[in-house]
Structure formats: C-alpha cells, structure tokens
Design a binder for these strands. Structure first.
Length: 272
DNA sequence: ATAAAGTCCTGAAAGC
DNA sequence: TGCTTTCAGGACTTTA
C-alpha cells in the first residue's frame, strides 16, 4: 500500500494525533520491525520526550523528538532528541487509536501518549520498519534518494531522468532517481501521460518528459488528498484488478506484464 | 499455491 | 579493458 500519498497520510495522522505530545510508553509487541535499534534503547530514547513536527521525503517519514520538559516561553523548541524514522514497506501503516484500545493483531509497536490517544505502527509483513536516528543518519538515508516526487519541479525532474537508458517505469520507481513513486502510481502516471512503460527514458524528448511531470503532479494531488492512489473507475488503478480490464479512456483491452519484476498494466492504444 | 502497493542483494549484461 | 548502470531474480515476511 504505502507509496508517497499513503505516507503523506501517515504524516497527517502524526500531526493531528502525536505532535507536541509526550511519549509515556513504548510497547514493542514484535521486535521484528526494529531496524538497528533494540527495545531497550528505543524505549529509553523515547519515553518522556515530546514528538515534534513530522516530515517526509519519498516514502520515509521522520519524527523528531524534543526534550520532555514542557515548552517554556524562552525555549519553545526544547532540546533536540533522537529522530524516529519510519518506512512502511508494502503493508505498514500508522494508526491513531484510543489510549486503551486493544491492539490489532499486526500492531507491532504501540506508542502511548500523554493525551487520550495512542499511536500504533501496524505492519503485516515486516519488510521494513522503524529506526532511531539523528541528523547524520538522516543524511545517509537521503543520500540514497532523489528529489521528492511531490515537490520536484520540471527542470529538476527532467534532469533526473535525462539520459537514463532503463525503461521509464523502472526509472520512476527507482528511489534514487525520484523518491516516493511506487508501482501503482507509476502505472497511473504513465497511462495519464500516454507513455508506454517500457519506453527507454533517454529516448523521450523534453516535451514528453514534461508531460510525465504534469501527469505526476495531477495524479499525486488527488492521491495525496485521498491518502492513497484512488481505485476510481476513471483511473487505471480502478481497473487493474478487473477480470478483463478495459481502458477507462478509450475502452481498449488493457495489457498486463512485468517491468523490472513488477506487475505492470497499460493501454496498448493510448500508450504506444 | 500464487501473488502482493517496498527495498536490498547478487550476478550478468549492456554501454561508455 | 574497466568502470558504471541497469536488469532479472531471489530474499525478506505474512496472508488471502
């Protein structure tokens, strides 16, 4: 599930449910989601600290923590603490629940807060997870990421893709080229831009590349609003699981195949 | 049993 | 030739 729009939704959850709240408890129900940090260190690092303003780059979500002391007038920010970094893999999510709500089967970590609610990191398959990091660690993560898909402008987008010889879909999916796009988004964007997914990026002229950027912006705008790539009937995503899927634009039979190991759906007529 | 919205690793092929 | 980029496949993990 989690591509950029989903992660953006989790950021909103954190903003409304966690920001400014003190962490009173950390229950690790399955340590399999911890990356590079143990239960003890995670708890001692977080308990008593306040959650700061969450921010996102690609599919990563970062949550700074601040000193646990209540904010004073002179020192509103508080001392800098460690930073929580979430990556949701294919099945992860962040939920806001009532403080005493019984955990769901895949709630791997429950963060109890000083208000009436708690935050849960839920993940069926534990493909990625939660880590504890700092400014240097964030830099290391971001070194491997291209510009964020939601904020990248046309020239930077063109530059990121120009000359790449891989299939345009593979390049869009490559987080070191553009950060945040996943399998569904890429298919949706290329369908909207009328570009076949296996087209080599370097064979695309500036005009086509800019068209992909425009399509990306439109698809992201709606998807971020909906907090997921919406399975609307007017979108490719709303058709890809049909028995015999047809293009919502021209009615042709959709094709399905594999591009860099991922299931790929496209319209052979609209995307020559 | 096969497949799944993510990433990482390997080995091989392609390109400069 | 050698370096880099890219691809395919498998691995991780759990459930429908």
């Amino acid at each position: 599930m989690p591509e950029l729009p989903d992660v953006e939704g989790f950021r909103q959850v954190l903003l409304s449910c966690g920001r400014g709240r003190r962490v009173t408890g950390v229950r690790v129900r399955d340590a399999g989601v911890l990356r590079g940090v143990g239960v003890t260190r995670l708890r001692s690092a977080l308990e008593g600290r306040r959650l700061g303003t969450p921010w996102r780059h690609g599919k990563w979500l970062f949550v700074p923590t601040e000193d646990g002391a209540p904010p004073r007038g002179e020192d509103p920010a508080g001392a800098e603490g460690p930073v929580l970094a979430f990556h949701f893999g294919m099945t992860g999510s962040l939920r806001c629940g009532a403080r005493d709500e019984a955990p769901a089967p895949h709630d791997r970590i429950v963060f109890t807060l000083d208000g009436p609610r708690s935050l849960r990191y839920r993940d069926q398959r534990k493909l990625q997870g939660v880590r504890l990091t700092d400014a240097a660690g964030i830099d290391r993560i971001r070194e491997g990421l291209g510009p964020d898909a939601l904020s990248v402008h046309k020239p930077e987008f063109e530059e990121a893709l120009a000359g790449r010889r891989g299939a345009v879909k593979s390049e869009l999916m490559d987080q070191s080229v553009i950060a945040g796009l996943g399998n569904l988004l890429c298919d949706e964007i290329l369908w909207r831009a009328r570009v076949a997914p296996r087209t080599a990026a370097r064979d695309m002229d500036g005009r086509t590349l800019r068209g992909v950027h425009t399509a990306m912006g439109r698809v992201l705008k709606t998807s971020v609003h909906d907090r997921c790539v919406p399975p609307r009937r007017g979108w490719l995503t709303g058709r890809r699981d049909d028995g015999d899927p047809h293009c919502p634009r021209c009615g042709s039979s959709l094709r399905s195949g594999r591009v860099s190991g991922r299931r790929t759906v496209w319209c052979p007529v609209c995307q020559p």
